[in-house]
Design a protein around this nucleic acid. Structure first.
Lengths: 112, 112
DNA sequence: AGGCTAGTACGACATCCGTCGTACTACTAG
DNA sequence: CTAGTAGTACGACGGATGTCGTACTAGCCT
């Protein structure tokens, strides 16, 4: 079984977390995990990118400490590290996820 | 008097805001503005970068809608658009600024 | 007017980042 | 054992980003 490195709770860095969640694809992953559906395999996210790119994004999220990944057979189960993030950066994850909802709900993406 | 373009409150984009605040230099600007000292000229921030780079960072923040800039003589006064941000992305700015404090207070930057 | 101060414009440069395809590994199911 | 599925490694590539220096403009002060 391969091993996946995760930063400890105390090692979480704001820079990494914010950079990780700056990308729309990665924010979408986090949002989907937050929306009640934890422990999803990477393939469960219908991302608009190739498999390699997908791997890349999941790695960024894991190394930033935003998600936790562990193998289950040939698949990887992903979950949000909501508790750790809350402990280290209270309200941050919540605010970003809520902001993502607001952003998606309004016609902000329009840029003709 | 030169004119500086700012996005309207409704036009604020999460992507832009998060990217803007992903950079340590820009986060530092926002933090300093939040710490009670509004309406500071660019030069009041002792940034560890050149003047041109400084201009660049202020522009990013302004175009993302994080700060408001207006000329006052030859200087520019900067202030946080805390109200607008709060209206569009409730809690987001607060959480990031608080996280920045936590991040600075703890030895997170250590990477031996 | 002339000099000073605050910031801008512009071009250059190195680096990082998101993206991809192909080839590979690890595990499961038959 | 073989075939299939899930994800990784690696290399490539183009575009964005942070940085700088130099030359410039706008406004203030004497």
């Amino acid at each position: 079984m391969r091993i996946l490195a995760h930063p400890d709770r105390g090692e979480l860095q704001l820079d990494a977390v914010l950079s990780a969640l700056s990308d729309p694809v990665r924010r979408r992953i986090a949002s989907q995990l937050a929306d009640g559906l934890d422990d999803q395999a990477c393939i469960a996210f219908q991302l608009p990118v190739s498999k390699s790119t997908s791997t890349h994004h999941f790695r960024i999220l894991r190394e930033a400490g935003v998600i936790e990944q562990h193998y289950r057979g040939t698949a990887i189960l992903n979950s949000l590290r909501a508790t750790d993030l809350k402990a280290r950066f209270p309200g941050l994850l919540q605010a970003i996820l809520q902001a993502a909802r607001n952003d998606a709900a309004s016609p902000t993406t329009e840029r003709p």
